[in-house]
Each structure stands twice: as C-alpha cells, then as structure tokens.
C-alpha cells in the first residue's frame, strides 16, 4: 500500500479544489449502501475512514483546472476510490494479508465471502452511478480500466514464488494493475467533460503509465526501507514469496549461490549479508537512475501536454509536473 506523508497530502489538498466543501471531499456515505445487508456498512466504515484518498485528490487537480461541476467531481472521486478500495478488498484476500492500514483486513475481521462480495458491490455501485451520469464513453473507459486492473491482479497472482521474473515483465503487470487507476485519474475528467482528443488521451495515458510505475517502484523500495519515512514494515513482499520490482532488479545480477539466502532473508541485515551492502547500494543507484530517465520522459510528455489548446491545461500541467517528486522521491517542492 502506498503511504503519503502529511506534508504530501497537504500539498495535494491545497492544489485540489479550493472550495471549502471540496477540500475534504466525502466520496463515501453510508447512506449510499443498503443497511439491511448485515455488516456491509461496518465493513465500509472500516475501509473508507482510514483511507487517504490520494486518487480522488488527483482527480481533484483536474476538476479544479477543467472547472468540472461539483457533482461530476464527486462522481469521479467516488468512482476511483470505489474501484481502488474494491481492489484492496480482493487483494488482501488473495494475498491472505492480515493488516490493511494498521487494522485487520476485511476478510479476516468479517469473512472471506463478505470481503469478495463487498468488493463486487463497490464495482456494481460504480456502474450504477456512472450509468446515471449518462456518459457512455466514460462508462466504457471505466469498464476497460477495471478489466485491466483485474488482468493485472490475475497475472500477479501467477508470479508468486517465481524468483526469476524480470523487471520488464513486472512493469507490464504494474501497468495493468497500478498504473491503470492513475491513467484513469488523468483521463476520466476529460472524458467526463466530453473532450475526446486522441493525442491528448495518448499523452495522458503514457503519463499515467509513468506515474503508476514510479508510484509502484517507490512503494517497492519501501519494502527495502528506502525513503521509508512512515516506518512501514519491511521485507513483507519478500517474505510472502513475491518478488517486487526492486527485488527483481537486485536479483538480476546475483550469482546462483546468493539467490537462496536472498530469498530467505528475514531482516535487512540478512539481506545485506546475502548480497553485500555495496552491491545493494550500487543497484539502488542504478535503479534510481533508471527512474530518473522515466521522470525525464514524463517531463517531455508534460511539455507536450502544455502545448495543447484546452482551457486550463497549462495550469493543470504545472501541477502534474510536481507529481514524480512526490510519488518517487517523496519530496514536496515549495
């Protein structure tokens, strides 16, 4: 799970919709869900009240600059948070995770059946809400994104305990699973406003892919205690038998005899003993360099985006340009 610091959230809140009612947008309301279904509201209360709503705030950036109506913004924010949280409910059951946002996961606290159904219900609500809005292209696009998300999850599950998977393959998985929602956050506001320019959407798609990759790679680095400002638990992926992007990158150049101790590392000290601290630091520097190239490419896309002739695009691009620093380096520029 990606963790933002309070400073990063403040930045996003300030740059999102400035109207008072929108700063802390309420995309979840228990009145939206039937109270006659046992435990459903309790499950959603647990799920939504501890979330930071990063994706809805990303949508908020677009909503501000594109001057979307409030109800459209709320719809989009709700849609993305519902999809994201539905995927969390399912993910936690698939991975058999015990904690989510420092609380017991839904499948553990309630039941696996309720966790699956609660996730499905959120996705169904998304379709109901979007249908009421009436923009067919938005419905179609959202359905595609959900489909991609599920594909990514399916494929990722097939890679557990695969210790030879490489970074390029994982990027394809993350592009489906993680980057899909970022792409949606960038594109959906334009679709909602019925701006369908192909080049614009291709740029947004490519930019969203990069943001998603940077987000995922930064999250994967947290697992190795890199820029782990919030003190998240480390080596969780490794211990679960899942090789994340940085793990795959580390493994690429290892000798055969180092792989087994690497896999079995329980602490960072074990890891450093297995592969050498110097090797770890070298690979980290190379990994960062790789991602700097991605950030350069992202900057190029932002320059292209800026030149597009749509109202609000220049200011929107200015805000988007700061995202790599937040997502990857976890720095917030004043």
């Amino acid at each position: 799970m990606f963790i933002l610091t309070l400073k990063e959230l403040d930045w996003l809140r300030l740059h999102a919709r400035k109207s008072e009612s929108m700063i802390n947008i309420k995309y979840y309301d228990s009145n939206d869900f039937p109270r006659y279904l046992p435990k459903l509201n309790a499950l959603y209360d647990d799920l939504f009240f501890s979330g930071k709503g990063f994706r809805s705030k990303l949508v908020g950036l677009a909503a501000k600059h594109l001057k979307l109506e409030d109800k459209t913004y709320i719809l989009l924010a709700q849609t993305i948070e519902f999809i994201h949280n539905a995927s969390l409910l399912h993910d936690d059951l698939i991975d058999r995770s015990h904690l989510r946002r420092n609380k017991p996961t839904a499948w553990l606290k309630y039941s696996p059946e309720y966790a699956v159904l609660a996730g499905d219900y959120l996705l169904a609500r998304v379709m109901v809400n979007l249908s009421s809005f009436g923009n067919l292209k938005l419905i179609q696009y959202t359905a595609e994104i959900i489909s991609n998300l599920l594909e990514g999850e399916w494929i990722q599950d097939s890679l557990v305990n695969d210790w030879s998977v490489n970074l390029e393959r994982l990027d394809q998985v993350h592009n489906l699973k993680t980057a899909s929602l970022f792409k949606w956050c960038l594109r959906a506001p334009f679709v909602a406003k019925e701006i369908y320019d192909d080049e614009l959407h291709e740029l947004l798609d490519n930019s969203g892919s990069i943001l998603g990759l940077l987000f995922q790679r930064s999250d994967d680095l947290l697992d190795f205690d890199i820029r782990n400002f919030e003190g998240k638990a480390i080596l969780g992926d490794l211990k679960s038998g899942y090789l994340n992007s940085f793990g795959a990158y580390l493994l690429e150049e290892l000798k055969q005899k180092q792989i087994e101790p690497f896999k079995n590392s329980q602490t960072l000290d074990d890891l450093y003993s297995a592969i050498g601290r110097e090797y770890f630091d070298e690979r980290l520097a190379e990994f960062d360099h790789k991602n700097k190239s991605l950030i350069n490419l992202y900057s190029h896309y932002m320059t292209q985006l800026e030149s597009k002739d749509f109202e609000g695009i220049k200011d929107y691009t200015k805000d988007l340009k700061n995202l790599p620093d937040i997502l990857y380096w976890r720095n917030v520029k004043k």
């Binding site: 399916w154 097939s158 890679l159 695969d162 210790w163 030879s164 998977v165 393959r169 998985v173």
Partner: peptide, 10 residues
C-alpha cells in the same frame, strides 16, 4: 509455468 509472464516461459 502458471502464466505467460512466468520466468519459465521467458
């Protein structure tokens, strides 16, 4: 091998 993304296919 469990998917086309598996290293066993690579």
């Amino acid at each position: 091998v469990s998917s086309s993304f598996s290293s066993g296919v690579e």
